[in-house]
Simulated scan of single mutants.
Amino acid sequence: MHRLRTYTASACIKVLRGNIQRMASIAEKRKHLHKEARVLLELIDKAGRPPLHKLPVKDARKATKAMNRLDGTDATLDGTAKEFAVPVSYNSEGVPITVYRPFSCPTNPAIWIYFHGGGFVIGDRAGSDATCKIIASKANCIVVNVEYRLAPEFKYPACIEDGVAVTRWIMENKQLVGAGSQSIVGVGGDSAGGTISANICHEVPGVDFQVLIYPAVDMTTMYPSRRDFSEGFMLEVETALWFHKHAFKRSDDMRAISAFNRDMISFRKQPPCLMIISDSDVLRDEGVAYAEKLRRANRHVEVMMINGMIHGFYTFPTLFKETCERAYKRTVEFIKAQEDKAGQSNRMAPPAGRL
């Protein structure tokens, strides 16, 4: 009995030391973070709430909504926000979308279709409302905010099916949403929304541009960033695995949704890409690898690496005021650049019916 108590005490001390070392390592890594990231992580630590992967899905969704309320951004749009239901064969209710259109839009404004993050399990378009309004206003373009189906109620490939359906519908109905026949159409999103967007670009011919914000594009490789920032930097590896458990029926699905695994033939057909990456994020390295593969395929790709930043900042324009201003500015510049290129191409093209 004495030996058992001694062994138990030794095991507890070993675990305690391990926890202290682990927390010390996280604290050391956090020293280089941007102030906005440190403040939010300290708020989360002080709240003492369990991580998402220790919650039932229902409670994780409530926690996500509470996080969105914490940001408290009340963005306004000098324009319209209209609701549509994109018709699909597999769902009589269609796919709900919100279309934001500034009153000052030109005749052929760019259309950016946005997919929210949340590991395919949590989140909704309400959480991206402020971001979509800000980009629409600053870029003077139309932004489409998509309410795609979530797991575990609707597992993969439901999210991709909805994304593809919405993109094709928008491309075929530009004027219905307030754009023009010559409007360019791009896709984008943060985290899981970036994953959906990357897959759409491989599935739907004719997409004009993509903005991928810290996307999960290779779930089959253990990159160094997955180890370096596995805990304590917003998105944790355990949470990512929790998302996977709910979102996928089998392990092969993770390979199928990982756009990095597409062949080079598909990569050579990819539209111009802006990749926005946080340097202190478990998904950092796969984003870099994806951008590099686009380069090898001779595609136009721009990478904005944000130093000292963590996963999830893009849809919190109040909590991450300085960082979001920079990221939104780059997003707007990229969208406008694609518009300019398309305008030049249209001016150079011969009139219809003439060679």
Results as ranks from 00 to 15, higher is better:
274 L>M: 11
355 L>S: 08
222 M>H: 11
201 C>R: 01
32 H>E: 12
276 I>F: 02
40 L>Q: 03
274 L>Y: 10
299 R>F: 11
301 V>N: 08
342 A>Q: 06
255 R>C: 11
201 C>L: 07
349 A>Q: 10
164 V>R: 04
44 I>C: 10
219 M>C: 13
197 S>T: 10
239 T>I: 15
297 A>Q: 08
274 L>K: 07
75 A>K: 03
337 A>T: 09
260 F>I: 13
231 E>C: 13
281 D>M: 08
265 I>T: 14
293 K>W: 14
252 D>E: 12
317 P>C: 05
218 D>K: 12
154 F>Y: 01
215 P>G: 09
316 F>P: 03
71 D>Q: 03
88 V>P: 10
262 R>Y: 10
86 V>S: 12
333 E>L: 04
185 V>K: 00
68 N>Q: 05
2 H>W: 14
212 L>M: 05
144 V>D: 01
261 N>I: 15
300 H>L: 15
91 N>D: 08
203 E>R: 11
277 I>F: 09
334 F>W: 04
333 E>D: 06
355 L>P: 01
23 M>W: 13
245 K>H: 15
321 K>V: 10
8 T>L: 15
258 S>G: 12
17 R>N: 13
66 A>I: 05
10 S>P: 05
117 G>E: 02
204 V>W: 02
125 R>L: 02
177 V>R: 09
300 H>M: 13
138 K>M: 04
210 Q>M: 05
74 D>H: 11
3 R>I: 12
294 L>E: 08
138 K>W: 05
192 A>Q: 06
231 E>P: 10
160 I>R: 09
252 D>P: 07
313 F>T: 03
54 K>D: 15
72 G>P: 01
86 V>M: 04
97 I>C: 00
232 G>W: 12
163 G>M: 07
263 D>K: 12
328 Y>T: 06
122 I>V: 08
22 R>Y: 13
342 A>C: 08
112 W>G: 02
70 L>F: 11
173 N>K: 10
6 T>N: 15
322 E>V: 08
100 Y>G: 00
120 F>N: 05
199 N>W: 01
296 R>Y: 15
283 L>N: 09
142 I>N: 05
163 G>R: 02
299 R>A: 12
144 V>P: 04
168 R>V: 03
23 M>K: 13
105 C>H: 04
49 R>L: 14
200 I>L: 03
127 G>V: 02
50 P>H: 01
198 A>V: 07
301 V>H: 09
73 T>M: 06
306 I>K: 06
298 N>S: 15
228 D>R: 12
271 P>E: 00
188 G>W: 04
86 V>H: 01
176 L>V: 14
242 W>M: 06
121 V>G: 00
214 Y>V: 15
150 L>F: 11
352 A>L: 01
292 E>G: 14
254 M>Q: 05
12 C>V: 14
265 I>N: 15
260 F>L: 12
211 V>T: 04
37 A>V: 00
297 A>W: 03
202 H>C: 03
109 P>A: 01
351 P>M: 00
